[in-house]
Structures are given as structure tokens and as C-alpha cells.
Write a protein that binds this DNA or RNA. Structure first.
Lengths: 79, 79
DNA sequence: CTGTATTTGTTCGTATGTATT
DNA sequence: AAATACATACGAACAAATACA
């Protein structure tokens, strides 16, 4: 999945992978995406890198984060 | 390897050495070449000189550089 | 959050040799 | 001869982004 030594930063690779899942409707609007810990384990990368990827998705308007609750797919993310 | 007192500038000698490695397929497309620091150590020259050599390779279309990631062999460099 | 490591980007100063004025 | 300009080469320092624990 992730190419650690490629030209593209890991956090951007992950952001693109997650964005594709969202846009394909794999995760429904207003439903939580996997937790940071789950993503760390799935992709074998550092937690900070996962957080950076999620912040990119936030800036793209694909997700929104609720403190102490999780990160959720935006209502119109895959519309 | 490098002839410091020869007629050819050091940065051009290094550019030619690296170009040969790329064209021989020693480094694959989209894979990183050694970092500037590694090249400094391998050839015993100044970092600025290494950077000058790499900029020559960029102008020749052999490599592309991603800030904070490295310098990578161009996709068609050894095609 | 902190701290550390790596890598490229940038700038400054110094020195040398060559060419020009 | 003298001054200027340019290219080459080295060294050092710091910034910023990435990635890890």
C-alpha cells in the first residue's frame, strides 16, 4: 500500500488512500472512520503521520473531527 | 573517482558519474538516489558542490527533487 | 505534547583561479 | 601592473518539512 521510500510523503499517500475509500462510499457520511490507532496498525506508520493525513482530509472537507469522539465522514463527502 | 586538480570541474565530474549510474539502471526510476550527505561522504567534497551536480542532473531531466524527501530518478531516465 | 533524526532549501563568508578591463 | 568580475569550491549555520518513538 504505502511506499515509504517513494517521492510522495507518507501522510499524503495515506490521505489519498482514505480519500478514495470515502469517495467510493466505503464509509458512509456521518459515520466514523477507523481510529488513529487502527490506522497506525493497518498501515504500519507513526501516529503523528496518521494525524497529519487526517488533517489533510479535514482541509479537503472530506471529514470532520469531534474531540473525544472520533473523525467522521462529511455529509456530502461522496455525493 | 573525483580528480580535484583536473581540468573538469568537480561538480561536472560528479554529475557524469551519477548520470552513468542512472543510465546503467543502477538506480531505478522513482527511487531515491543517495542523499546529499551520503554523496558528500562518498566523494569527499562539499555539499554545495554536490547540490550543483544534482542541479545539472535536474537540467538534463535525469532526476527530480522533492523537498524534504530526496532526489529521485526520473521515470524515463534509463528507458 | 515533547524530542530526535533526516533531508532539502537558503544564505553567508572565505579562498582560489581565470578572464577582462 | 591593478582592479574588477565571474566561476569554482569549501565551510558553516539555520530554516522548514517529514517521520519516528
Amino acid at each position: 500500500m504505502i511506499e515509504p521510500d517513494g517521492p510522495v510523503p507518507i501522510y499524503l499517500q495515506l490521505a489519498d488512500i482514505l480519500a478514495e475509500r470515502i469517495e467510493r462510499g466505503e464509509w458512509q457520511p456521518n459515520r466514523a472512520i477507523p481510529s488513529e490507532t487502527q490506522l497506525v496498525q493497518e498501515f504500519g506508520i507513526a501516529r503523528n503521520t496518521v494525524r497529519k493525513a487526517i488533517s489533510v482530509l479535514r482541509e479537503r472537507g472530506l471529514v470532520f473531527t469531534v474531540p473525544q469522539r472520533g473523525t467522521f465522514v462529511s455529509p456530502q463527502a461522496n455525493a
